[in-house]
């Protein structure tokens, strides 16, 4: 689909992609705490960037959702910046569309990511999402999930420990 968008500037393919992911992007934007119209604008900007830069998408490196996630993340950071000169932009942190990386690195990344998702128990992964990807405090997460605060903290600790182990294993 992204290939068709990139090569043929295919609006129909883009409309299909829009139908597939815009609601998900918006769901995430709302979970980040954005107001309705801010979230919708962020989703539009993200999809516009996907249209513009479809040629840079490299399926060997990441899936469509991962790519869309990084674009939304970057657009969100840049929307929040007030003083453009002296604050950190997404361009500073990430090369938006780096020159072709070597294939091996892409494969390794994909394998590491698969293991990460497979090895993390669902609850731990959800709590990781709540805290780090949605920026919620431990106590808010506890309230939302109906869990004691202590269990949220210990789940998070277990999740991070598991990530550490997985990292060490992938280095061998």
């Amino acid at each position: 689909m992204i290939r068709r968008i990139a090569n043929d500037r295919d609006r129909e393919a883009f409309a299909m992609l829009y139908d597939e992911i815009s609601g998900n992007l918006n769901g995430y934007a709302r979970r980040l705490g954005l107001a309705k119209s801010d979230a919708e604008e962020l989703v539009q900007e993200t999809l516009l960037a996907i249209w513009r830069n479809a040629a840079a998408f490299n399926p060997d490196k990441a899936g469509v959702y991962t790519w869309a996630f990084t674009i939304l993340r970057n657009k969100r950071i840049d929307r929040l910046r007030k003083d453009k000169l002296r604050t950190v932009s997404s361009d500073d942190l990430w090369q938006q569309f780096p020159a072709e990386k070597n294939r091996d690195e892409g494969d390794l990344n994909a394998r590491f990511a698969r293991n990460l998702i497979k090895d993390l128990p669902d609850e731990q992964r959800q709590i990781l999402y709540n805290v780090y990807f949605e920026g919620k405090s431990h106590s808010v997460v506890a309230k939302e999930r109906g869990m004691p605060l202590g269990s949220v903290k210990s789940s998070l600790r277990l999740a991070i420990n598991r990530l550490k182990k997985l990292t060490q294993a992938s280095k061998q």
């Binding site: 998900n24 992007l25 469509v64 790519w67 990084t70 939304l72 990460l116 990781l128 999402y129």
Partner: peptide, 15 residues
Amino acid sequence: QQSAGFEALGGQLLD
């Protein structure tokens, strides 16, 4: 590589 793995975790969340 780890950072790319965490980005993929974000992709999974979005999915």
